[in-house]
């Protein structure tokens, strides 16, 4: 009796301690970034171009560039990923869907630097150098397998009876998929998509030799463009203390953006549309 109670207590304590331990890295990382980055953040930092050491300047172009590159990646990755996921969910037993499913699994495990090399070989080499487009393609390649899976899972959760109900009304298959299955699954798809966007917004490796970087404002999709992760990397490995401080500031902005996306997902989940 006593032993059982003791074992129960010990196990509960162990679980609580593990949970607390898991929080420590996150909290200490957030604390470090905020404490080192907050003093750097100013209107000037958020809106100005980078400047040589000792002259201030900001990360404005990197923030702009990150939005553009992630935007390009979403414009390519979301429609392709959702469409492919839809196919997997509605036609699960074809040869093609098995191949796509396997590919998506493999693709989720590909290191991001490899994805970068792929985009380099396809776009950078063939279309005149580093560009925002190449960066967007690299990030889209990373997004697609996650979006495919999340769409597939969400659509498979839609009960078969709803498809039957629609088909029994004389609705063709494609309208059933689009209007009944997709709309019922939209909540899960939107959540998964936002989380994927948050995940790729911080990727550095695929951008290093695709979007490259730039010390100026965005100059067109076929030109190199600055992004937050690459800028943080460049500033962090520089020899200047002022740049190190600015790298912390950039890190805070990036983490802030990703956290905002995650919180948006939570709020949306609470609303249950």
């Amino acid at each position: 009796m006593l032993r059982r109670k003791l074992a129960d207590r010990l196990f509960t304590f162990f679980c609580i301690a593990s949970a607390a331990l898991a929080l420590i890295p996150l909290l200490s990382m957030l604390y470090t970034i905020v404490s080192k980055g907050l003093s750097v953040i100013s209107l000037q930092f958020l809106t100005q171009l980078p400047a040589p050491p000792g002259e201030g300047g900001g990360f404005g172009n990197a923030i702009q560039g990150s939005f553009i590159v992630v935007g390009i990646a979403s414009a390519i990755g979301i429609p392709l990923g959702v469409a492919a996921g839809m196919y997997l969910a509605e036609f699960p037993n074809t040869k093609l869907s098995r191949a796509v499913s396997f590919t998506a699994d493999v693709l989720t495990g590909v290191p991001s630097i490899i994805t970068g090399i792929f985009a380099y070989a396809i776009i950078v080499v063939n279309f005149g150098g580093f560009s925002a487009l190449a960066g967007g393609v690299a990030l889209a390649t990373m997004m697609i397998p996650f979006i495919v899976r999340t769409t597939e899972e969400a659509m498979k959760l839609v009960p078969w009876e709803l498809r039957e109900a629609s088909l029994a009304l004389g609705a063709p298959r494609w309208r059933t998929t689009l209007q009944v299955v997709l709309s019922t699954a939209r909540f899960g798809i939107i959540t998964g998509t936002l989380l994927t966007v948050a995940r790729i917004a911080g990727e550095t490796a695929p951008l290093l030799f695709t979007a490259f970087s730039n010390r100026f404002w965005f100059e067109g999709v076929m030109q190199p463009v600055a992004t937050l992760p690459v800028m943080i990397y460049t500033y962090a490995i520089s020899p200047f203390d002022e740049w190190h401080a600015q790298a912390w500031g950039g890190a805070l902005v990036l983490v802030g953006m990703i956290l905002t996306l995650n919180i948006l997902v939570r709020v949306a989940a609470g609303r249950r549309w």
């Binding site: 009960p159 009876e161 709803l162 039957e164 029994a168 004389g170």
Partner: peptide, 14 residues
């Protein structure tokens, strides 16, 4: 299916 409608065992509104 348009001419022959169906109501299922479990209510299944969209």
């Amino acid at each position: 299916r348009r001419r022959v409608g169906m109501v299922f065992q479990k209510p299944n509104p969209f």
